[in-house]
């Protein structure tokens, strides 16, 4: 079974040979592999030939890193659309389509940052129709971009607009239904119609909007943030027959917890996510820069020892 087949089975609510893994981003390459992934900034000023060479080397490096980590889904980031497309083609050629590739594909409103939050909230109250028109435009642009990525061989899109704080959703469920849900639904629908896989990521406590997220028909929900009280056992019971699950390994413990807390979180996520398929084992955020490398290695070691069906 290829990594791609394994990921697709899990995303299709089926049971592969073993539970696949991946991460939304992997930021520990410098510490664990002595190099880092290419960024668009690093390409500035390079000639076309130099750019091609850099993209090819980056593709080879990505294959090396993610093969050694055992990921089934490869996240492609940090590059322009044009360069993501080239990278996807390079990786698929190098690996004979061994992996399921993924890239950012969302086009819905995330929690705005500090500077934009007040403006956004006031617009929700004062000019809701204009906000909806903007939401439609963003979704249409995302659908168009996602299609180009899928046409280039990126088989899944990860939709990363965050909707929730630890305490709960930013928008009320009624506002979510009005300003997010129709557009998220359309993005997921377009991904499905193009033969791709939609992985909806959001941090925070998703439980008040869990059913609405599932109604948008992503293939999977990602992060299932235990820091926000999201319990994979409860999510699996409630919606595990409708959507695949990714994550729930407590990311903050990897930085500040004990070894026992890390392993206990791995155990809980695996024991409750794995049964019957439809689960991808990963952390609830990303292995972020500055995290002790040995802690993430502990997560990978746990996965290897416990992944088989």
């Amino acid at each position: 079974m290829t990594h791609r087949e394994r990921a697709v089975l899990a995303l299709s609510l089926q049971q592969p040979d073993y539970v696949p893994t991946f991460e939304l981003e992997y930021q520990l390459a410098p510490e664990m592999f002595g190099g880092d992934f290419l960024t668009e900034d690093a390409l500035k000023g390079l000639s076309p030939k130099e750019t091609e060479k850099a993209l090819a080397e980056n593709a080879e490096f990505m294959v090396k890193v993610y093969s050694e980590l055992g990921y089934s889904i490869l996240p492609l980031h940090y590059l322009s659309l044009e360069h993501l497309i080239k990278t996807a083609k390079l990786i698929n050629k190098l690996t004979h389509d061994e992996f399921l590739l993924t890239a950012h594909g969302d086009g819905t409103f995330a929690i705005p940052d500090g500077d934009g939050m007040l403006d956004f909230v006031y617009r929700l109250a004062d000019e809701p129709e204009a906000v909806k028109a903007e939401a439609r435009k963003m979704a249409d642009e995302a659908i168009e971009r996602d299609k180009r990525l899928m046409d280039a061989g990126i088989g899944s899109l990860i939709l990363c607009s965050d909707y929730c704080f630890n305490a709960g959703p930013f928008l009320s469920p009624a506002m979510f239904e009005e300003f997010i849900q129709p557009y998220l639904y359309d993005i997921c629908k377009a991904i499905r119609e193009n033969g791709g896989y939609a992985i909806k990521h959001t941090d925070g406590n998703i439980m008040p909007i869990l059913d609405m997220l599932v109604e948008c028909r992503p293939h999977a929900l990602h992060s299932l943030d235990p820091m926000a009280g999201v319990d994979i056992r409860e999510v699996k019971q409630r919606v595990g027959d409708k959507v695949a699950l990714c994550g729930n390994v407590h990311c903050a413990y990897l930085q500040t917890g004990t070894d026992e807390q890390v392993l206990e979180s791995c155990r809980y996520a695996m024991e409750n996510g794995k049964p019957g398929g439809g689960y991808i084992f990963c952390t609830s955020n990303v292995p972020f820069r500055g995290m002790p490398v040995e802690r993430y290695q502990m997560v990978l070691d746990f996965w290897k020892a416990n992944r088989d069906y």
């Binding site: 909230v121 006031y122 009320s172 506002m175």
Partner: peptide
């Protein structure tokens, strides 16, 4: 109590 959410709070604060 999760009866209102951040936007309602900010609009009330305005």
């Amino acid at each position: 109590n999760n009866e209102v959410f951040v936007p309602e709070v900010l609009i009330a604060a305005r």
